[in-house]
């Protein structure tokens, strides 16, 4: 209760709250497509690979947004180039590129600023959200939500049946890179809240929990966004009250939601199925 009281009274907490909710929503939305397209590793790669961009931005004292977007996009293209132009499989290409970018990022960050900054970027510190961070997140949020809403049809068909999409004339490669670009934007928006290392938990886990609960893509996107926002708020709550780093708390919150879905999903749940088969046995007996 004290938390809600403080939320009403402290501007910094309100900023953190708005930012977390938006991050949760867009991570859930983009994460749904990442999960269904089997690109979870790609999500992990891009989130790590924005680090050198953040470092360079610090050095040039420009907003970290620009550098992060640049290295994120560069990563997506490098991975694409290696897996298409050589016999290297895409998971290896991802490993090669993102570890290189991440390593470079760590070196640059330690040169550029103190070690505390590195911890914040790696693990998130939602309470230190500034005005500019909140606005970047809101603008990115608007871009992501509008894009997903406007092109939902194209995202759906290219994720489900890429061949049909290509057969009727959609540019599926463009759609792939557009999703990579949105993923980079989402990662940048998530830096303050969850941090580079654990962005993947916000992208993959809420969407996976939602995936276990529905047979409709639109419902999955909405549920994943809701789970993401809920986890982010839980993260904020703990980091405010108990002074914990927000990223790990958020990651564990998403995991808890996933475990609940995994056990109790009406159709897929482990426990649910156990009861169902027991019910059948009783009926048979």
């Amino acid at each position: 209760m004290e938390f809600f009281h403080d939320l009403m009274n402290y501007a910094f907490l309100q900023k953190a709250f708005i930012t977390s909710v938006m991050v949760g929503i867009i991570c859930g939305a983009i994460g749904s497509f990442i999960v269904l397209r089997g690109m979870a590793l790609m999500g992990d790669a891009i989130s790590h690979a924005v680090l050198p961009g953040v470092a360079i931005s610090y050095m040039l004292s420009i907003n970290y947004f620009y550098g992060a977007v640049l290295t994120g996009v560069l990563t997506a293209f490098s991975i694409g180039a290696i897996s298409q132009k050589s016999r290297i499989k895409s998971d290896s290409a991802i490993g090669i590129v993102f570890s290189a970018f991440f390593a470079l990022g760590i070196i640059l960050i330690t040169k550029a600023r103190s070690a505390t900054d590195l911890t914040q970027i790696l693990f998130g510190n939602v309470l230190s959200v500034r005005d500019s961070d909140m606005w970047i997140t809101l603008v990115i949020g608007a871009i992501v939500i509008v894009t997903v809403a406007l092109f939902f049809k194209e995202l759906l068909i290219s994720s489900f049946d890429e061949t049909m999409a290509a057969a009727y004339g959609l540019n599926t490669r463009f759609i792939h890179y557009a999703i990579m670009f949105l993923l980079t934007l989402v990662t940048v928006a998530s830096l303050q809240t969850v941090g580079v290392i654990l962005v993947v938990s916000m992208l993959i886990t809420p969407a996976s929990a939602a995936y276990l609960l529905t047979n409709r893509l639109s419902t999955m996107v909405v549920l994943a966004s809701f789970f993401g926002a809920l986890s982010a708020v839980i993260g904020l709550y703990f980091s405010f009250l108990y002074n914990m780093p927000s990223g790990p708390v958020i990651a564990l919150a998403t995991t808890s939601i996933f475990v609940l879905a995994f056990l109790f999903s009406p159709q897929q749940g482990l426990v649910t199925q156990m009861f169902k088969s027991r019910g059948k046995q009783d009926a048979a007996a």
Partner: peptide, 10 residues
């Protein structure tokens, strides 16, 4: 065999 039959679609 080219379709993901687990896709959330009815």
């Amino acid at each position: 065999s080219n379709i993901d039959w687990n896709f959330p679609i009815v």
